[in-house]
């Protein structure tokens, strides 16, 4: 059984169809990249998968359960957690408390949640900032915190939205390595990324969107040779 099965997913905003008849699946253990030019519908797809907006039509099955109508917190509880393209910390809470909010999902007791959150902070290399306020972190730290909060919910599928955007090469490599490691430990990833370099480097499989439709999928090598993709996407990017 696929971990995630999306069939004929569609979302309209007024007259605009942001996502149109999208069908794909994600297998356990994969890192799947979702790419496409700006406005292709990637963030909208994420918002539907994570319960923030309801699909106009179509079906999303996660671990065999339909999650179309679920709220984000319910989706999260099932093991599907997202991060945000624009980082969303809790600014007046400490870094530890930020991560604890995620950890509370499966550890209602504060002592346990704190312990889990500390483990996560070690993983994302932010343990030394545990007592700092969320608002004083730098962008690379915030990007890692964004992953850390989500990680603390112990997801089986993690959706990362442009998690490397705005980072320098070294910082980016650190995050990519983290993703690879977590993937080896069993977490499945669906990642949206603008930077081809990141996607090609990380993904086992790539899905290409354009104008809300899937115009191709395959291994990074296949994708980089697919004429439709090249025309629609690669030509527009650097």
């Amino acid at each position: 059984m696929s971990l995630l099965e999306v069939s004929n997913l569609r979302r309209d905003f007024g007259g605009l169809t942001a996502v149109h008849d999208l069908t794909f699946s994600v297998e356990p253990g994969e890192i799947v990249g979702l790419i496409g030019p700006n406005g292709a519908g990637k963030t909208t797809t994420f918002a539907m998968l994570s319960g923030f907006i309801t699909p106009t039509s179509g079906e999303i099955l996660f671990k065999g359960t339909s999650i179309n109508k679920l709220k984000p917190h319910q989706v999260c509880l099932l093991g599907l957690t997202r991060t945000f393209q624009i980082v969303q910390p809790f600014p007046d809470m400490t870094v530890l408390e930020n991560v604890m909010i995620g950890a509370y999902t499966h550890h209602p007791n504060t002592v346990d949640a704190k312990k889990k959150a500390m483990e996560v902070l070690e993983r994302i290399n932010l343990a030394h900032k545990a007592e700092e306020q969320g608002k004083i972190l730098t962008l690379p730290e915030l990007k890692r915190l964004e992953i850390g909060k989500a990680l603390a919910t112990e997801p089986s599928l993690l959706l990362l939205d442009e998690v490397a955007a705005g980072l320098k090469d070294v910082e980016m490599e650190e995050i990519l390595e983290l993703v690879r490691q977590l993937n080896r430990e069993g977490i499945t990833f669906l990642i949206v990324e603008h930077l081809m370099k990141v996607i090609m480097n990380l993904s086992h499989r790539v899905i290409v969107l354009d104008f809300g439709q899937m115009i191709g999928q395959g291994t990074p090598a296949e994708i980089s040779k697919n004429p439709a993709v090249l025309a629609a996407y690669l030509g527009k990017e650097d």
Binding site: K71, P72, C76, Q88, F90, G102
Partner: peptide, 27 residues
């Protein structure tokens, strides 16, 4: 404020969407 309930309330105040995404039943 020292337990899950309180922290989750704070998280709602701080960033409701982020809280919801992390499994907080904000409603």
């Amino acid at each position: 404020i020292k337990r899950r309930f309180g922290y989750q309330l704070l998280s709602i105040r701080e960033n409701e969407d982020a809280a919801e995404a992390l499994g907080v039943n904000t409603l």
